[in-house]
Design a protein around this nucleic acid. Structure first.
Lengths: 348, 348
DNA sequence: CTAACTGACCAAAACGTTTTGGTCTAGTGA
DNA sequence: TCACTAGACCAAAACGTTTTGGTCAGTTAG
């Protein structure tokens, strides 16, 4: 037994008939356009209220080419192929915050997977604009959206697309510099870097900044690469590699792992090999997560403040949609959460 | 400098002109309706492909009254008034899983806040159907949607609306019985319950089942109530209450806290008062979370398997949208994750 | 007194589809 | 030859808005 009562929604025609005016007058009254005698306007408003009328968003969208929905594509999730990687709360926090901000501005937010693939709902290309989080290099999604004339902003730049300027910087270089400065201050000299394999700006710019730092300090750059999807096991694997060459070239003073799960796995494996964190080696993660907060010891991490980033991205996109093509993207500033993994004083 | 290239999307008229047929024939060719000579159909298909044509979802939606979007309202988040409560990953996992499942079925998923409030995007009432997670008693959102003839299913029943049957049970009673059986098996007799203040079925049915168990076992029912939004501090507050009356009526053997954050706070406060978990008192949470996984000791919890629930909810809603009014809602079965907080054998 | 303007309102077009109800031709059976 | 059917196609209506381009009456400027 279904409940659907098939109660037809009131249309603008119903209101017009009931109020004894034309639909033009109803539309004008409701939207504050045109000139309508105030008595008439009030009568229309009352009638609309009484009938529970609200303009159908689809019909309005068809006419005015504005649906009231923003699309969100989180590219790393397309490669992860799962929307619930354990402990990775960055993206869900991002999506939630983006939804709230969009709602506050009168837009809905629709989560969409890679729209270049088949079987994506047609509505995806009908939204008013897109936020693309962490685009890949020369991202085909951007190409598709541009071809269809859909406004978009990205969070993190597309490293293969220098002509595209509507992106929010993630403060990646600043973060890397802050981490390296923090580690140096705590006495580290030989710092290794562990990046992911996605071709996004986060990985690219972190590595770039690190290499700059290394050459400026006359240190050899030691960069490991590990698949983001490998999780903690991936971090352990990197630790194995470090241990394998430790006899020859020694272990680093400190390791900067972009991914929190890599950091947790790496720390655990090094501890198992008898090393103390932070006394023998310090560890920092570039992305705060459940794993970094709850490792023993807790791992110093960059809190990427997805709530702030999401809010800024929505704001920036809405500006573009509304025709403001000049304002430049906001700059995101993240915070370094100092924890025990880099606390040399507190080490036994 | 904006990037928007104002490239007009190809319409059905463009395809018709280019292929030398009427728009009717294009529509029929593309949708497999009507009778079209196969040579003609192929020509149309090729032309559409060449022009990169895909039907505009809004226009289609207007005509066929089907937008291809599902709405999701997570009611507890409306009261929490934040979409990113720290460590509460149930809802974000739910939303992510629902989005994936919807996408797999050709729908978009739109996250929406309480649509009875003002300033909600009009599109909210234009979606094809709604999933309402954890409705409040006699939820006004349900009333609104029903008045507008929008299909909906709820996750957890509306405790004030017995005539509404399209809800997915959360297995709440089964969960409660499993927890109580587990605690009894580990030697507990005097078990206390801590529920939240939302008027949803989870709270109501947990308490009901608990009281049934208490009277069946001739035990006094001890029920504490704490606001869901109070977090770990709320759990500590409950512990204070327990400690205050401990001299008179003793401490319970075990506590069943529905909310994971309450459980974590409660455990910490009791430990601070010198009690050992699980030796002196056992603790179980009704909802697994970061806090229950990472407390010391880790807290035995019900894993509410939001991925499974979300998938089932989408499936059920799509059935209703497609006119299947008969199939009954699926039954969700959750799992009890046994951890050290109820492990009496392993206690010192 | 006429022309121009203004205030109040409305009919119809337009948005891009799907679907209804045709037309026309060629073939079939009687 | 005539009625009928089936195949192939199309014109126009419909979905519910917003917006364009009016009309009409009354008022003001010259």
């Amino acid at each position: 037994m279904s409940f659907i009562p098939e109660r037809r929604r009131a249309t603008i025609h119903d209101v017009a008939r009931e109020a004894g005016v034309s639909i033009t007058t109803v539309s004008h009254s409701l939207n504050g356009k045109g000139v309508v005698a105030s008595a008439t306007r009030q009568r229309v408003l009352d009638t609309a209220e009484r009938l529970g009328y609200s303009a159908d968003a689809i019909a309005r969208g068809l006419r005015s080419n504005r649906l009231g929905v923003l699309g969100l594509v989180i590219r790393p999730l397309d490669t992860l192929d799962s929307y619930q990687p354990a402990g990775v709360d960055y993206f869900v926090r991002f999506a939630g915050a983006a939804a709230v901000e969009a709602l506050d501005r009168g837009f809905g937010l629709m989560l969409v997977r890679d729209p270049t693939t088949k079987n994506v709902p047609g509505i995806a290309l009908a939204v008013d604009g897109f936020i693309i989080s962490d685009p890949t290099g020369n991202d085909p999604v951007i190409t598709l959206l541009q071809r269809n004339g859909i406004p978009l902003v990205t969070v993190g730049r597309d490293v293969g697309r220098d002509d595209f300027t509507d992106w929010l910087g993630l403060g990646t270089a600043e973060d890397a510099r802050a981490v390296l400065a923090h580690l140096t201050e705590r006495g580290a000299r030989r710092i290794a870097l562990v990046v992911g394999t996605d071709t996004n700006a986060w990985n690219a710019d972190s590595e770039l900044t690190y290499r700059e730092w290394a050459s400026a300090h006359a240190e050899a750059a030691v960069v490991y690469q590990q698949d983001e999807t490998a999780g903690e096991a991936g971090g352990e694997a990197i630790a194995e590699q470090m241990l394998a060459v430790a006899a020859v070239q020694g272990l680093p003073d400190a390791v900067y792992c972009l991914t929190g799960r890599h950091a947790a796995g790496l720390q655990r494996r090094l501890q198992r090999a008898g090393y103390d964190v932070p006394a023998d080696i310090m560890i920092v993660a570039g992305s705060d997560s459940e794993q970094t907060r709850n490792s023993a010891p807790p791992i110093t991490s960059i809190d990427l403040t997805p709530e702030i980033t999401a809010k800024a991205a929505v704001d920036f996109l809405v500006r573009r949609i509304e025709g403001d093509t000049d304002s430049s993207p906001p700059v995101i500033v993240n915070v370094l959460r100092q924890r025990q993994s880099t606390n040399r004083v507190a080490a036994r």
